[in-house]
Simulated scan of single mutants.
Amino acid sequence: MSSLAAQFERDGFLVLPDFHPAAACRELMERGRHLSENYRLDGKGSVFQTSEQTKTSDAYFLESGERISFFFEKDAFDETGALKGDLFRSLNKIGHALHDLDPVFDRFSRSPQLKVLSASLGMQDHLLIQSMLIFKHARIGGVVDVHQDSTFLYTEPDSCVGFWFALEDATIENGCLWAKPGGHRTSLRSRFARDGKGGTRFLELDPAPLETDGMQALEVKQGTCIVLHGRLPHFSQPNTSGKSRQAYAIHTIDPTAHYPMDNWLQRDRRALKGF
């Protein structure tokens, strides 16, 4: 086992500074703005919330696994359904197939250094199943409640691993990630599944609440890669600063693991690719 793999097994996360150069981070942010500027809002936009996604799940959300889709902050719209501000700064994220459908995101998601990292972690055969450009705009970027990524990308056995890239400096003030070393050595509390009626539901696996005691702020510089175990509880606070905290995340699964048909995100498994 490599030293990185041993550290990951012990802590449940890795913090790898200077993983991507600043130029690559800027290119991804510029591409995200370009995609946003070419998006045309048709009717009421789809809202993303980690804790209350069952209330805002719709066909647009459920079909986003095979598309490049745009999701808004929960407070982006007024009581009439109109945007309170400009479209770009009202967005929460873009997802969930950027890594497969956009050439700029594809290059970033399958960089030579990421191939080396995945091999050192024994994950060279993992499949990239989801990607998200997360904006966390200044003064509007909302809270992401404590959660486990395997809740949203459930496999049997558990195999989800996330790679989170700081496209800008992440601080306590602008909503960096929080996690506890060793926090992944716990049970998966729930999984997010389709309800068979066009919506979604959380299926409880363990009623114990996720604890935030002992979590530390992962304040990192632009270009840092944070690797996250699927069972690691983590969260981020609202962005109360005057600086945005853009990040890009990809999630992977083991191709030999069972991926249930009622998982909210569905992809054509034959089309999935690795690093």
Rank of each mutant, 00 (worst) to 15 (best):
M1C: 14
S2Q: 06
S2V: 02
Q7D: 14
Q7K: 07
D11M: 02
G12K: 04
F13I: 13
L14W: 04
P17T: 02
H20C: 00
A24W: 02
E27D: 12
L35M: 03
S36Q: 02
S36H: 01
N38R: 03
Y39C: 06
D42I: 09
K44S: 12
T50R: 01
T54P: 01
T56A: 08
F61S: 04
S64D: 09
S64Y: 02
E66S: 10
S69L: 07
S69A: 13
E73A: 07
K74Q: 11
K74G: 14
A76Y: 05
G81D: 13
K84S: 08
D86R: 12
L98F: 05
D102L: 04
V104I: 15
R107T: 04
R110G: 08
S111L: 08
L127E: 03
I129P: 08
S131A: 15
L133V: 00
A138T: 12
R139D: 13
I140D: 06
Q148D: 05
Q148W: 03
F152C: 01
L153K: 00
Y154V: 01
T155K: 01
P157Q: 07
G162L: 09
D169N: 10
A170C: 05
A179R: 08
K180V: 11
G183F: 03
T186M: 13
T186P: 01
R189K: 14
A193C: 04
R194N: 13
D195C: 05
D195N: 15
D195M: 00
L205T: 15
A208C: 12
G214E: 13
M215G: 09
Q216G: 07
Q216A: 10
V220M: 03
V220G: 04
V220F: 03
T224A: 07
R231W: 00
H234S: 03
S236C: 05
P238I: 09
S241G: 13
I250H: 02
I250C: 09
P255W: 05
P255V: 02
A257I: 04
P260G: 09
R267S: 13
K273V: 12
G274T: 10
